[in-house]
Structure formats: structure tokens, C-alpha cells
Amino acid sequence: MRRHCNRLWGMALLLILVAGCERSPSPWVLHDISGLMPPLEFTLHDGSGQTRSEKDYRGDRVLLYFGYTHCPDICPTTLAKLVSAVHQTGKAAERTRILFVSVDPARDTTDVLQHYGQAFGPQVTALSGTQAQLRALSKRYRVSYGYGKADARGRYEVSHSSAVFIFDRHGSARLLATGADSAKKISTDLKRLAAE
């Protein structure tokens, strides 16, 4: 009897494990993060020095990316890719914002942020904040950033996450793009998101 019981328990457990592993295929090209990450929320400032929060972008689809302006290669390349992806969505581009959050507030003054955002076109807003504000935001989306040692000329490198978080117009976190995802992939999912 005891042995019989053991076997039953074992089978039940196996069934639970198998059921847990089965998933329906995702319709998204990018990583689907619905329900995994909290809705968009932040307090930062823009290039004019004005405080900005998620409320300013309600009704817009938001692409959130962390970087710094003294980054000549990765950040502009990623931003250019995001701009291109947004342009490919056609009319939906009007209600899509790319928020570039600089994690290097020491060098990225409001003036620098203002010109930097403009250089990539009307879709891009460059934001930054105090270390406390930036830490709160990076903790919320579980990304890391840090500073390298300054060289003789005071230049230093900033390491930052390569993730792009995509929020729908209600501010819910929906998708995650990585550095390897192409503009085409991103635009495919942005179109689908716009059609909702």
C-alpha cells in the first residue's frame, strides 16, 4: 500500500512539472515581458530642466533606453535603430516616444541633453536625474549601470544595460528588445502593439 502511494505521488508531481513547462507560442518577435515588470514610472528631468514623469507620456507607446551622451558608438547606433524602427511603423510613429535616460548626470547637463535629443529627431527625448532618481528607475527595471575610472584627462567610461523596454499606451511593460534585435524586428512588434 505504502509503495503504491509513493508511485502515485511521483506521477502526480511529474504531471505538475510537465503542465508547468507547456506554454503557448508567443505572437511577439521580441521578448514578451507582460506581467513580469512593473508599469512605467519615473521622476526625471528633460533638456529644459523641467521635471518629467510617466504621466507626461500617457497615451504614448514608450521605448525606454539607458545610456550616456559621451558614448559615440553604441548609444547613437541604438538610438538611430530605434528611430528607424519607429519611422517604419508609419502613422503609429506619432504616438511613440523614445526616452533616452542618461545615467551620467555629472556630464549630461540639461543643455547637453537638449541638443542630444534634438539630434535624433522629434521622437527622442533625452532625460536624466539625480543618482537617487536614476537608481530607483534602474532598480525598478532591474538594470545595472556603473562608472569606470577617469583617465588623466578626466574622461571616464560608463557601463550601462543594453536593454530597451517597450511600454504600451497604458504604461504597461510589454516587450524587451536587446542590442541584437534589428530595427525591422522592433518595428514589427511596434506595429502589432499600435494595432491593439
Binding site: D73, E157, S159
Partner: peptide, 17 residues
């Protein structure tokens, strides 16, 4: 003012030069 050769990497998840 100065020109250097750099290499970017994203392989450790952190974008760096």
C-alpha cells in the same frame, strides 16, 4: 583634439568601450 581606436562590446550585457 584627440583620436583613439576603440572597441565596443555588449557581450557582457553591459554596453562598454
Amino acid at each position: 583634439a584627440a583620436i583613439e581606436i576603440h572597441e565596443s562590446s555588449e557581450q557582457s550585457g553591459v554596453a562598454r568601450m
